[in-house]
Write a protein that binds this DNA or RNA. Structure first.
Lengths: 125, 125
DNA sequence: CCCTTACATGAGCATATATTCATATACTTT
DNA sequence: AAAGTATATGAATATATGCTCATGTAAGGG
């Protein structure tokens, strides 16, 4: 394999460091999958929605009311989460109930919450 | 406190569900902190950068070369991560070395990687 | 002091994102 | 079938984001 060091800065001094880091790189598809997952959690609205839907099943309008959002906004975000298979829905009459039983997302969110709660305390500066 | 149910849909049938979910809501500042943290991981470039900087210390140009990016793009993202105190830097001559020793970010990223590796296997649907 | 190297940063641009508004669809009731 | 309720969705809009290009700043060498 060819490792280009044409435009190497540092006079190419650290080519070993670059090679080392390069060998440990994450595969591109993995990186994309990862960023996609984190992106789902990278918005206040979606965090609130998921936190609710992890707690219990809710129909769209109840979710909208609980969050003080319009039905349309909630529905658009639900479509987003549905596309990523993060939430599921079931129909009952003309209401549609959503849930989130995605263990991965739940784990990441919970870990984030735990971290955020502790943060600020050990911000040594 | 007043719980509005003016524009309650479902004829206000699920007001208990709404109240329940409302009582368990995350505090706004926490939600914002959370989304900020996840946002840092919600971009392929930053994931790659952080993965490198968790592995070892790198100067800007080496990071740029390892990732096949311009120095400017890397520098902009480093500023972003620096502002969030996710990465640290130290100067040595006219090179500036960056590292990421943020345990929270490292934890989230690792958890995401683990999950992403297993995913696809149990995609029953 | 001038030049080079390494990094930072502001402006501009193209794209992505989150919401709103209007409207379409699916189901229920009469 | 017609009307009502709950949800979905397309278009439009405002803002955010990530990159490039040009330039500014800090440290080192002659």
């Amino acid at each position: 394999m060819v490792v280009r060091m044409d435009d190497a800065c540092c006079g190419g001094l650290h080519s070993d460091a670059v090679a080392d880091v390069r060998s440990g790189q994450l595969a591109e598809p993995l990186v994309l999958t990862l960023s996609e997952a984190f992106k789902a959690l990278a918005d206040p609205t979606r965090i609130r929605m998921l936190h609710c839907l992890l707690r219990r099943e809710l129909c769209v309008c109840d979710l909208a009311e609980a969050l003080g959002m319009t039905q349309s906004a909630v529905s658009h975000q639900l479509r987003y989460l549905r596309t990523l298979r993060i939430v599921k829905n079931r129909r009952d009459g003309n209401a549609i109930y959503y849930t989130c039983d995605d263990a991965h997302i739940a784990g990441l969110l919970q870990m984030g919450i735990d971290h955020a709660m502790h943060a600020g305390a050990n911000e040594g500066g």
